[in-house]
Structures are given as C-alpha cells and as structure tokens.
C-alpha cells in the first residue's frame, strides 16, 4: 500500500490557471487568455429539470470576505444520476457533467447556474434529499474543506440520513434558502469558515 501525497494550499495566485475567467480582475495586463476548463455555469443544452442559480458569500473567522477562494461543486442531474462512468448509453442529461467551479469576487461572492439535482441513493437503501457536495479551497487552507448544500424547499431534508448526523442547532448552515420572487429561483448559501455561525464541514 502506498502512502498518499499530502495536500498543500492552493495559495493566492491560482486564478490564471484554475479560474482564468473568474470574478476578480487579477491579470496585470488585461485578462487571462488561458481557456477555462471548468466554469460556474453547469447548464448544458440537454439538461432537464429546474434551472436554478446559487449564490453565496464566503467569510473568515473575523467575518471578512474571502476574495481569493475557489468553490467547487459536484452534483447529480435532475433525475438523481451522477456522471460517473463514461461509455453509457445516450440518455437525457448526457452532457450534464454535474461539476462546477467558481472563483469569488472582491466581496467574497461566488455563484453557479445549474439545475436542481434529484434525490440520489443513500445509505441503507434510503434515498438522500437533493443536495450538492461543496469543496472549498483558498489561501490559508492547507487542505480542502467539504460541506453540503441542501435546499430550503425540500421536505425530504427532515429524513436525510446525512443531515440527521448533524447537530440540530447547526443543520441550518447547510440549507440554501430560496429567495422570493426570483426567476430562475435563486438559492442563497453563505459559507462561514469559522466562528459562531460556522458552516458545518464534513470529515470524509
């Protein structure tokens, strides 16, 4: 058995490599010409389901915005299927990768355009409430931190086996709140890296 390669911080200068079309203008001379591999719009022409926008602000232990973070999300399609094997039969959402990456802007705000995921299989044969896995990188983080985003308008949250492992008084930090009167629906999901209202992070 081999021993794994340790993690190191993404540092402050990843933008031109990982988020060249990001939300801050970090390029000394105009914009970065490097093609983006992964962006913050996951919606493909073949994507079915409810189109949504996710927006949030990430702050540190002093409540100060983190303007040099990178947020990655991983989710199922609207039918609750992950794109985890290639060479499958053509099917709806075949082009929907379920993976997105957003830089933060100068106010620490990130965002994604995507579709609301369906329920996916969970432990003990029960399905999980619709959710998105969120992975956060930034200067000052020597390793990524994982959390999950759940949706405020899903009754299935009450019986979700992962959410129920979280102390009840902290569960709210994982709920993205649907903002009234937005079309497509905007779900707000702020991330507090540290402090009184600290977001729940997972040891996985």
């Amino acid at each position: 058995m081999s021993d794994i390669t340790p993690s190191q911080t993404v540092g402050p200068f990843f933008a031109y490599g990982l988020t060249p079309k990001g939300r801050c203008e970090w390029a000394p001379n105009g914009s970065y010409s490097w093609k983006e591999t992964v962006g913050d719009n996951l919606i493909t022409p073949d994507a079915t389901g409810q189109k949504i926008h996710i927006e949030g602000r990430i702050t540190d232990g002093d409540g100060v915005q983190i303007n040099d973070a990178m947020i990655e999300i991983w989710q199922a399609d609207s039918q609750g299927r992950y794109l985890h094997a290639r060479g499958e039969q053509p099917r709806p959402n075949a082009k929907f990768t379920g993976f997105g990456r957003s830089a933060t802007d100068k106010n620490g705000v990130f965002g994604f355009d995507t579709v609301k995921p369906g329920a996916v299989a969970g432990p003990n044969g029960k399905s999980q409430a619709p959710h998105i896995v969120v992975c956060i990188f930034s200067r000052g983080m020597l390793r990524q931190i994982y959390t999950r985003l759940y949706f405020s308008d899903e009754a299935a949250n009450a019986t979700d086996s992962i959410l129920n492992l979280v102390p009840a008084d902290r569960r709210g930090t994982l709920i993205a709140h649907k903002e009234a009167g937005t079309e497509p629906s905007c779900y707000r999901f702020d991330i507090h890296v540290q402090g009184d209202n600290e977001t729940v992070f997972f040891d996985i």
Partner: peptide
Amino acid sequence: YKSTVKRSPSKPLIIVPHTLSELTGPV
C-alpha cells in the same frame, strides 16, 4: 502559516459515511 488562523474550521468536523455523492466524481 498565519493565514490558517482565521481560515480554518474551529468546530469539530462532522463524521459522515461515504455515499454515492462522495464516491463519484468529475470525469
């Protein structure tokens, strides 16, 4: 590494099982 002081979780991380959501990944 000073930047970790305000950018690291201070509460215990919650231990959860690996589900399909963690066991799959981008292709």
